[in-house]
Amino acid sequence: MGRMKPQTLLLQSKKKKGPTRIISVTTIVFGSLILLLFVLSLFTTYRYWSQRSRNLSGNNDLEDFDEDGEKFDRPVYAILDTSKGSIVVELFKEASPEIMDKFFHLCKTGYFKGMLFHRVVKNFMAQAGNSQRVEAAEDWMLDMKPQNELMSTKHEAFMLGTSKDIHANKGFDLFITTAPIPDLNDKLVVFGQVIKGEDVVQEIEEVDTDKLYRPKSPIGIVNISLRRQR
């Protein structure tokens, strides 16, 4: 067999070798930038949805709160921001599940925003809600029982409640008592007690009113928020 020429061997050697790929520095940097942008995009998306979830919950730390009629195990507080200041109410665990469920729903949907105290009676109560029920406070005062009657804790001052005829008026009035009311259980479903801001309640109580106990100057609820802590 004849010996192959050097030129032939060189050509065959080049054919056997595969193509050599060289990854440039520019390609590496470009790829790294794309990866970094992808990671930043994921992080930004995560922060956006986390913040949106907190905003939808009303910033009230009650994401795990039951609204299906179950009684709650931990204290829950309602913060009433009024035009006179803030009032903190501790809600009762033993309150009516139906009333509590509706109250929580109305708080989260902004029902109480801008609601006025349309009836204020000194040494009695301040009422916010359905201003059409002009006779409500007068009826209460006519029906009051003697003050020396044995009272329960729910007959004390600074209690938060709503009317028992809530279904009849299709609204949700709020009543804050400013003095002990002997027949309170006959009139209200009490579901909370003021634990901070009694001075604000008293300031609302001292507002000038007309003969129908309507404040001469508007006093309203800016908003009501719910919290696990005060």
Rank of each mutant, 00 (worst) to 15 (best):
T8D: 15
S217Q: 06
G31D: 02
N123L: 01
D165R: 15
G58M: 09
K187T: 02
K93P: 02
E149N: 14
V120Q: 00
I195W: 03
R54E: 12
F172G: 15
L150M: 13
R214H: 03
G197C: 00
I79S: 13
M159N: 11
K113F: 02
E70Y: 10
D61H: 15
V201H: 07
D143K: 13
S41R: 09
P19E: 01
S83Q: 13
K187I: 01
L42P: 08
F172D: 13
D73G: 09
V88K: 13
Q147T: 13
G192Y: 03
M144I: 12
S41N: 08
F175S: 09
W140S: 13
I176M: 10
H105K: 07
E156F: 03
K187H: 01
I87L: 15
R214I: 04
D64T: 14
S53K: 13
V89P: 14
D61A: 14
H155A: 14
V25E: 04
N148F: 10
A137V: 04
P75K: 03
L91S: 12
F30L: 06
K216V: 03
D66S: 14
D139L: 08
G220P: 00
G69C: 08
T44Y: 11
E203Y: 03
G192M: 02
E70R: 11
R54L: 15
Q127D: 02
F112H: 12
Q127E: 00
F72Y: 04
N148S: 12
G171S: 12
S13I: 11
T27I: 00
G18H: 07
F38E: 04
H105A: 07
T209R: 08
P97F: 00
P19M: 07
T162D: 12
D186M: 02
Y111Q: 04
E205L: 01
L62Y: 10
L33E: 02
K93R: 05
I87N: 13
R74I: 02
F30S: 04
L226N: 06
G114K: 09
V88C: 14
T45R: 11
E94K: 07
I219Q: 00
Q193V: 00
A168C: 07
L142R: 15
I79V: 15
F92H: 12
G114Y: 06
F104L: 04
N60A: 09
E205F: 01
V89F: 12
P6T: 14
E138G: 13
P215V: 03
I23L: 04
E203F: 03
K211V: 10
P180E: 07
T44K: 11
N185V: 05
H167T: 09
I224P: 12
K108P: 02
L150N: 14
